[in-house]
Design a protein around this nucleic acid. Structure first.
Lengths: 210, 210
DNA sequence: TGCCAATGTTAACACCGTTAACTTAAGCAA
DNA sequence: TTGCTTAAGTTAACGGTGTTAACATTGGCA
């Protein structure tokens, strides 16, 4: 495992690290295996001893991203249900804005579709699990309406995912310039947008969910 | 403008159309100018007489996508504010699910970033305008809380955008297998997720938004 | 000590987007 | 009708890509 001129000795880890920093700075489309190999000082095919192909390398980076995201979500204080829900939302969007290129890689869809890299899929599930647990806990404590958990998590995830992508793509102002947007959006979901909520009008309930 | 063997006579439109069908079927990453030219029966550089580069061709297709999306949103019945808002949400998500590859191109972020193709940007704005108008109309009629319009549209857009991408990427079930998801998610935003909204329990209100 | 497996190498294949330099032909002016 | 300008094609070429095949080196274990 010494580093002669021939056997590099640390290629896997170094390639991983170098590729990660390229993705974070310039996005996954800036990753070229040939250029990466040249930077490290190794021939391009050498990389194939450690990664099946370009996509598998990207999958490794996305896994790292999901682990980071999960850690950020786990740091949210879970004492008060409302604060926990808003905290998760803010932490989620903050991660996406801190790591826009990584977030796009994780959820790009075009590259790294579901079902191809099992470890990637399960890393994504683990991160999502934190959000789901938070919603479940809030519902169990009676803070949320007694609706299907899947509906509530789908709504929450859609909201933060959409807000994340729209801000990092520049369609909506980022937290930097509009500090209260993410919290406002999250609160709006919790409290509802309708002016005269509930009680009256069974007319709303007779047409939706089974 | 006749079609001799040399001057094709209809290249621009045919390339546009062929590329569009490739994107719809296989996604924008499947677009190769050389392959496209070969399919049409023309040399690759000929395409450059009609498109500045590959990205500009993709931008044209995305513009078409935004026009289609706008048309779908304009067909939503605007009589009842609540039905209009839910209808817009459903139409938006339905479009994304009907044209997943086109939707990803329009909102991919990696390709076609904002500020590069002005016509594309304004096509996107025009589509978004329909959503914003619907929210504004509902608020003007007193159906929605008197909050900033920008906050409400940001929330609505985030929700439908997130739901669209999560479903077309397979992270959430599509309308096909869960017909009520989109309506449920939209209703949840309108009515709020909290079990005991407003009124009682100032304990919730004393710590949140300014 | 000798072999094996891991981990490198170079050469090559089949693509890709894009540009330069050249050719054809359509359309308009004298 | 002739001639010129210009739009719209052509081939050749540059530099890049992911990936595979065949070969070389070397670390570590029997």
């Amino acid at each position: 495992m010494a580093r002669t001129a021939y056997h590099h000795g640390d290629l896997q880890q170094q390639a991983h690290q170098q590729a990660l920093s390229i993705v974070r700075e310039h996005g996954d489309s800036a990753i070229s295996l040939r250029a990466l190999a040249k930077q490290i000082g190794v021939s391009a095919p050498a990389l194939y001893r450690h990664f099946a192909d370009r996509e598998s390398l990207l999958a490794e980076l996305a896994i790292k991203g999901f682990e980071w995201l999960r850690e950020r979500l786990l740091q949210v204080d879970q004492n008060d249900p409302r604060q926990a829900l808003i905290g998760i939302g803010l932490a989620y969007v903050a991660f996406a804005q801190d790591e826009p290129n990584l977030y796009r890689l994780m959820f790009g869809g075009r590259v790294l579709p579901l079902g191809v890299h099992p470890r990637l899929d399960s890393a994504g599930k683990s991160a999502f699990q934190v959000l789901e647990d938070t919603v479940a806990r809030a519902r169990d404590r009676g803070f949320l309406k007694p609706m299907p958990l899947s509906l509530m998590t789908a709504t929450a995830w859609s909201l933060v995912h959409g807000l994340s992508l729209l801000t990092i793509d520049g369609h909506l102002p980022a937290t930097e310039s509009e500090p209260h947007l993410a919290a406002g959006v999250t609160s709006l979901l919790l409290d509802g947008a309708v002016a005269f909520p509930t009680r009256r009008t069974t007319s709303q309930n007779n047409e939706d969910t089974a």
